[in-house]
């Protein structure tokens, strides 16, 4: 069952008046439970593709379907709601809200959904236990290491049981060992909870552990393995 499907996806954006053809026609299909990495040299358009798939950006031409709904039909507020309920995001940096504790950060999207305090708390604590970060519960981001922050970010991304988690260079600021541990975690989530993961990365470690690799060059898929 395909979750995301694109058709002739093109994206052009303006860079100081010069049009940049970031995506030149992408057709792809991603199925539930996949563990896919989008790789490629810089300028290949991998972050752009991830952004479009994640409903953060709109394509210039072509369509994106999510579970048979065309994202182009949705208005800004609907997309926001869509991201809240169906997607999870992990970024390279600035993932967590600095003034909230780890626990509160994980509870955050549940709060946006209006879940009760009891439910949020239980779910969040349970997840933290599972991910072995329970001791970080009352700490603020500036009291954690980079690796710890990213682990919390993973928890936050999956706590609402999203369909897909989009991860943009999640290991970029981490050393090899920490990065590896993070990947272990995400693979575990993928396997146990059948959450689809789509990465964008140029980190060799990430690429080598990909189950499916989409290699982009100059806005087109060069290889799909």
């Amino acid at each position: 069952m395909s979750i995301i499907r694109t058709e002739k996806l093109e994206k052009i954006y303006q860079d100081n008046g010069v049009p940049v053809h970031a995506l030149r026609g992408i057709d792809l299909e991603i199925k539930k439970g996949e563990y896919t990495v989008i790789a490629g040299p810089s300028g290949s358009g991998k972050t752009t593709l991830l952004n479009v798939l994640g409903a953060l950006d709109k394509p210039t031409k072509g369509n994106v379907w999510f579970e048979d709904q065309n994202l182009a039909d949705k208005k800004k507020a609907e997309l926001s709601d869509f991201r809240l309920k169906k997607l999870g995001f992990i970024f390279q940096a600035y993932n967590l809200i600095p003034v909230l504790t780890a626990l509160e950060n994980i509870e955050f999207s549940m709060m946006l959904l209006g879940k009760s305090e009891k439910e949020r708390h239980e779910k969040a604590m349970a997840l933290m236990e599972e991910l072995e970060i329970a001791e970080l519960a009352k700490k603020r981001p500036n009291e954690m290491s980079g690796g710890q922050q990213q682990r919390v970010a993973v928890a936050r991304a999956i706590v609402n049981n999203p369909e897909i988690v989009m991860a943009d260079e999640p290991t970029a600021n981490l050393d090899t060992k920490t990065g590896g541990n993070l990947l272990d975690l995400m693979e575990k989530m993928n396997a146990e909870k059948n959450i689809t993961f789509i990465f964008s990365s140029h980190d060799q470690q990430v690429i080598s552990r990909a189950k499916r690799l989409l290699y982009l060059r100059d806005g087109l898929i060069e290889k799909d393995s």
């Binding site: 869509f82 809240l84 809200i97 955050f108 946006l112």
Partner: peptide, 15 residues
């Protein structure tokens, strides 16, 4: 930066 992340995870703009 932080606002951007918060918006991307689905916080309604008006909030």
């Amino acid at each position: 930066n932080e606002f951007g992340v918060t918006l991307s995870i689905g916080m309604p703009q008006i909030k």
